[in-house]
Design a protein around this nucleic acid. Structure first.
Lengths: 253, 253
DNA sequence: TAGTGGTCTAGACCACGGT
DNA sequence: CCGTGGTCTAGACCACTAG
């Protein structure tokens, strides 16, 4: 049961200046960042609550509050009698994924960047009102096609405000994932998703990318991801061929 | 700031018998049930944490734990400096709803029961594996059509195991809502949803109910709701006309 | 049996909302 | 100003896991 020991120095109430940082938040963000940076690997155990009390000069109540927050955010799991283990963060916050995408290894999935990140215009098909900031800002755009067993299943267009986040070249994506890049390189977390879903017939342009006949029934999703950076929203227009692989989504309280 | 006072009698550790009920759970379920039964109206304030400590002979820690659970479950909201207020429970746990369905009053929505609750066969289109219990059990089925401004938008088929829940006549639905009925009359809560979504062309039967042409692009959802009763799942097959009103869903952490 | 997380007590001080 | 919820301390005992 390998543990990671910490030398932690935070001046909680330094020199009478207004320091409103809560102790539990300090502990929480300390581990959050270490987990995001993968300094603490997945499946590793955090120090015991008792040890954390000593290391952070805090009581169980405070330490447990910090861990409970990390639990709520999906960074750790608690195992009674064993410890708190770092887990793979549930990435799909109710976001639709291809059936079999996560967890199952039945299908080989790969992603092809069909339009590299570039400055472009906002898509008129985005179903959400842009903020004033976003309207005025230039816009970063990229397009990807997701394939299962070689067959193109989702055509994914993404937009975001260049004022809120720089243009990230496709080669800099962490393990090819845009979300992992946001988390690990920019410490930005996806906080929520909103989706608008329609059923449509494939247009020529879409049919070409998805390699289907024009007129096939296609799922169109307009998605907005909200992030921990209030200025940064990610907008997506997804065209999905659901004839072979349905879109699945789930939510549990 | 009207409060509701409570006379509460629970023998926490009666006569040495094994009574493992946690105190915070007792407080939690006490208020949960009262809220479900609408004995405490929406927007009313619970007694202050200090008062609750006295009434339940507990400490702040315990009382706060109970309230935090109610908060997580969406029954109350806490207002710093004011109190804990009962709120309308978010009913759509990530469940897709018609745009404008909740909150907005732009559209008039009504629900017509097109097939009253009856014993029937399980639908072969259900995308989730049935438990052994469910397979053996007879099945309750009903069908509803949801209309916006008079136009049929969703054709909703519902199935559940008759072993887990009795057949409820449509007239007994609380305010016409099946979920409200479950919560208020049976104290069963919906805990999670899983969905499988496909895009299809309308068949004759569906087109008839939705009053559209055969061959229109239609959204098909196979839905499973999990409830607080582990034996009771609700299965749905929804056919949606998204040409005028898209389906929306959202999730925030 | 030793170590872990889960529950609980009995206090304290602070920040916020309304009077 | 008082009452509210938010944070925190310093302990205690219990339930679970594992050697």
């Amino acid at each position: 049961m390998a543990h990671f020991f910490v030398t932690f120095l935070v001046h909680n109430r330094e020199s009478g200046a207004l320091n409103k940082t809560k102790k539990y938040e300090q502990i929480q963000t300390y581990f959050k960042k270490r987990i995001q940076r993968a300094e603490i690997p997945i499946n590793a155990y955090l120090p015991s609550e008792h040890d954390l009390c000593e290391q952070f000069s805090a009581t169980r109540t405070t330490v447990r509050k910090a861990l409970d927050e990390l639990l709520k955010e999906g960074y750790i799991e608690k195992e009674h009698g064993r410890g708190s283990r770092v887990i793979e963060r549930r990435k799909s916050l109710g976001l639709p994924t291809i059936k079999g995408f996560s967890g199952s290894t039945d299908h080989e999935i790969d992603t092809e960047v069909t339009q590299p990140p570039q400055i472009a215009d906002w898509d008129p098909r985005i179903a959400f009102p842009l903020s004033e900031d976003e309207k005025k800002s230039p816009c970063v755009y990229f397009q990807r096609v997701r394939r299962i067993d070689g067959r193109p299943i989702i055509l994914e267009n993404t937009w975001y405000s260049a004022n809120a986040l720089c243009l990230i070249p496709a080669n800099d994506f962490v393990e090819g994932s845009f979300f992992k890049t946001l988390s690990q390189k920019f410490h930005v977390e996806v906080k929520g998703v909103e989706q608008e879903i329609r059923s449509e017939l494939a247009t020529t342009a879409v049919a070409q990318r998805l390699e289907v006949k024009v007129g096939l029934a296609i799922l169109f999703l307009s998605v907005r991801f909200r992030t921990s950076d209030p200025k940064l929203n990610l907008y997506g227009s997804w065209y999905c061929n659901t004839s072979a692989y349905p879109i699945v989504s789930s939510y549990f309280s």
